[in-house]
Design a protein around this nucleic acid. Structure first.
Length: 425
RNA sequence: GGAGGAGUGGCAGAGCGGUUGAAUGCACCGGUCUUGAAAACCGGCAUACGUGAGAGCGUAUCGGGGGUUCGAAUCCCUCCUCCUCCGCCA
């Protein structure tokens, strides 16, 4: 969530930023927050004063007891009782105001970076780096991945329906092996680039889900094990980022770079058509995530370093890609800047999103309470970043479609050592 | 799942109703000494919010939440976590 101090110091810039996202009536929203914060300060001042008086009276009572001056004690006790009543009321109001502020902050998205353009939807995204070579030529009768899957027996959605429900694919044979190969390939590449491999739990508690912003507003996106009040993670970002919840780092520890493979679970109801066909949108999928915790002055350097890393992966997979910088309206709620990677599927004649790399600046760390000490010993919020490197189903689909030949699906060279085969036929 | 024990500062560990935000040791930082280092000695060393130009002051926090009391790290309730024993089990 946003820092109130930042809103106070840069109100105009915050309003500008929210407008880029088409956030309705940002002036009103921020004003409400600031007014409530003023009220909060005033209430705390009153409450602290009252508590100080109570504390002081209690000490006096202690002294009087030692002196066996019981009559005086009763007078002071009465005073304390009175002040306590008032203090209780103040505290209740204080809590209410705090809750109200939180609710408003939860409902306010991150301020986009100044370079992010205004826009309403995907059409307004900037092409940051286009694919400038010809697209690979496919043979006549090239197929979309769901038909290729039937042809070569790569995954089985109907079987998933039998076992679980729609959107839970079953991978088979070389398809399953390819999944495993990709996971290992990505983890190895990420590790080589300096990311430490983490194997986190794939269920998290409420506190973790709250800290990375899945709760309260995106509750319906997550599978919830109600008996134990645990949530299946929608992305490794949740457990991995929470490793640094309530942590104060040393400035020298930056940057912290972590990578994790996990299954991801998303309920995402409400889409239809080509968007959800085949592997385009499923409820359970595998993803290798990269996460960085960075010094605020360096976070954009790291963002671009992550970009270059993901780009390298796509090159090794020999896929035609482009990089978009998302406009304000298409960016995620918590992001300050996001780049999307898209692979062009000649078979489907459209771009498929395969990775998203974002800088959250302090939006996440504020809720996480992830800070570092600067040279003056002051606590400063760190920046958090993450990206997919990479998500499996979309990549698998892209590879199937882009590398299909009349003989079968060609496996890019970089993967041969992992798959043990060079073609799926 | 059952029975018992325990959770205090970065770590270890006192305190078990009244100047205890918390002894002591270790670690860490600064200084003295030293050619340098070590040792020794001196000093510093939690977080958040409020307030103040600042020094500082106020408030809250001893696993989380609630309660008793004029006053709680200390008593009570509840939840969580860890340890020991029994049961079950990949």
């Amino acid at each position: 969530m946003l820092e109130i101090q930042k809103i106070r110091d840069n109100t105009a810039a915050c309003i500008e930023g929210l407008k880029k996202r088409n956030f309705p009536d940002p002036e009103d929203q921020l004003e409400k927050i600031l007014n409530l914060d003023d009220l909060r300060k005033q209430l705390q001042k009153e409450s602290d004063g009252l508590l100080a008086e109570i504390n002081s009276l209690s000490k006096q009572i202690g002294e009087l007891f030692k002196q066996k001056n019981i009559n005086e004690v009763d007078i002071l006790k009465a005073q304390v009782a009175e002040k306590k009543e008032a203090s209780k009321n103040l505290e209740d109001r204080h809590k209410e105001v705090l809750t109200a502020i939180d609710e408003l902050l939860y409902a306010t998205p991150n301020i986009p970076h100044t370079q992010v353009v205004a826009g309403k939807s995907a059409e307004d995204n900037e092409v940051y780096k286009d694919w400038d070579s010809p697209f690979p030529e496919l043979h006549a009768g090239a197929l979309p991945h769901w038909e290729l899957s039937d042809k070569y027996g790569i995954f089985d959605l109907k079987l998933g329906v039998k076992l679980t429900g729609a959107g839970f694919p079953v991978y088979k044979g070389r398809g399953a092996k390819l999944q495993r190969a990709l996971i290992n390939f990505f983890l190895d590449e990420n590790t080589k680039a300096g990311y430490e491999e983490i194997q986190p739990p794939i269920m998290v508690n409420e506190e973790s889900a709250r800290a990375t912003g899945q709760l309260p507003d995106k509750e319906a996106q997550m599978y919830h094990a109600t008996l134990d009040n645990l949530y299946l993670i929608p992305t490794a970002e949740v457990p991995v980022t929470n490793i640094y919840r309530d942590v104060i780092l040393k400035e020298t520890e930056f940057p912290i770079k972590l990578t994790a493979y996990t299954p991801c679970f998303r309920r995402e109801a409400g889409s239809y058509g080509a968007d959800v066909k085949g592997l385009n949108r499923v409820h359970q999928f595998d993803k290798v995530e990269i996460v960085q915790f960075a010094h605020p002055t360096k976070s954009y350097d790291h963002l671009h370093e992550m970009l270059a890393h993901v780009e390298g992966l796509l090159q090794k997979l020999e896929l035609p890609y482009r990089i978009l910088r998302l406009c304000g309206g298409d960016m995620g709620f918590t992001s300050a800047m996001t780049y999307d990677f898209e692979v062009f599927s000649v078979a489907q004649k459209r771009w498929l999103e395969v990775s998203s790399v974002s800088n959250f600046e302090t939006y996440q760390s504020n809720r996480l309470k992830l800070r570092y000490k600067d040279e003056n010993g002051k606590s400063i919020l760190a920046h958090t970043l993450n990206g997919s490197a990479l998500a499996l189903p979309r990549i698998l689909a892209s590879m199937m479609e882009c590398h299909q030949t009349e003989e079968g699906i060609r496996i890019p060279k970089a993967l041969h050592a992992y798959t043990g085969f060079e073609i799926i036929k």
